[in-house]
């Protein structure tokens, strides 16, 4: 029954989740601090931290790191689709909507 093993996500220890939670809270504190102190490139840093948090959420809480290879790869498809929507929309908006 090796098939079955491959299909199941192993039990993640409580401790791992606690560490991830603490990491997320630390990132939250940093991102708020960056904004409150009005640091240079605050927007970029905020977004960078948001992506980092999303990555932790995706790979640990959502267990993507234990998923089958297919699900790890196919997630790139919606991301790629979304990026192409953004790029193509901006091929118009960038030239038309400048503030």
């Amino acid at each position: 029954m090796s098939e079955r093993k491959e299909n199941e996500i192993p039990i993640v220890s409580y401790r791992t989740f606690f560490y991830i939670w603490i990491a997320l809270l630390v990132l939250l504190a940093i991102t708020v601090a960056v904004a409150v102190m009005n640091a240079a490139h605050a927007l970029g840093l905020n977004l960078l931290i948001a992506f980092l948090m999303a990555w932790l959420d995706l790979f640990f809480f959502m267990n993507l790191r234990h998923e089958r290879l297919f699900l790890k790869i196919i997630i790139l498809l919606p991301i790629f689709a979304y990026i192409s929507i953004i790029v193509l929309t901006y091929s118009d908006a960038f030239y038309r909507m400048a503030g």
Partner: peptide, 19 residues
Amino acid sequence: WHFVDMVWMFLFPLFYLIT
């Protein structure tokens, strides 16, 4: 649940941290 959480991770900086 984690996905809905992830959406908020982006909503938060974009609405609260841009002053």
